[in-house]
């Protein structure tokens, strides 16, 4: 970067300037960026997958066996990035609680959940949840019984994880789209129960 371009501005300001530089140099066009943003997923997309797994036992089996392939049934894909990624679904049960982190950087199932929350990228979360997950989860408001086994999954560029949360009790009568509304982003990372 040439001299005189050093900034201490806000992240948003810096991003706008990088974007302008990329467009000016022909590396990306505004239309391409627009298309990427339009295709950006949100936690509601992950919630659709989870709700479907709750109501359709056969889909649940396929999701737990090969999540990368199973989400394609619902129109999602892990193959949109620079390199193909593998998605692995982690099943929470009464006896096992899963929680996801990326200690080396911030790997996250963006293709399904959209951008990760800021805390997911924080050094505090990344360094502490592998060491003392029960304490970290407690700070998120999730108190797990001592009998519940905790499994922490350190994601990588190649493998992204989706937690399949426990279906809340008393929701047997709810339709799939109403179930989806109960499913939170943190529930699919494993830092909350539903």
């Amino acid at each position: 970067m040439s001299e005189g371009h050093h900034h201490d501005g806000s992240i948003a300001q810096q991003v706008r300037e990088v974007e302008a530089e990329l467009e000016a140099s022909g590396i990306v066009s505004a239309a391409e960026l627009e298309a990427i943003l339009d295709a950006m997923r949100t936690p509601a997309d992950g919630a659709r997958v989870v709700a479907h797994a709750w109501v359709d036992a056969a889909f649940r089996e396929r999701l737990l066996g090969d999540a990368t392939a199973a989400i394609e049934e619902l129109g999602y894909s892990m193959h949109g990035g620079v390199r193909p990624q593998m998605l692995v679904a982690l099943e929470n049960t009464e006896a096992v609680h899963n929680v996801v982190v990326c200690t080396l950087c911030s790997c996250y199932p963006i293709a399904l959940l959209g951008p990760s929350p800021p805390w997911y990228k924080s050094e505090a979360y990344r360094s502490r949840v592998v060491r003392e997950p029960r304490a970290v989860l407690s700070e998120f408001g999730l108190e797990l019984a001592e009998t519940v086994e905790v499994r922490v999954w350190d994601a990588s560029a190649e493998t992204r994880y989706l937690v399949l949360p426990l279906r809340p009790r008393g929701t047997d009568e709810l339709a799939e789209e109403h179930l989806a509304a109960l499913i939170t982003r943190n529930g699919m990372i494993g830092t909350a129960s539903l």
């Binding site: 060491r131 499994r151 922490v152 990588s156």
Partner: peptide
């Protein structure tokens, strides 16, 4: 084994 304490597992690729 990793930390000398804790009853959880950590899975790494």
């Amino acid at each position: 084994a990793l930390w000398g304490a804790g009853d959880h597992t950590v899975t790494v690729n």
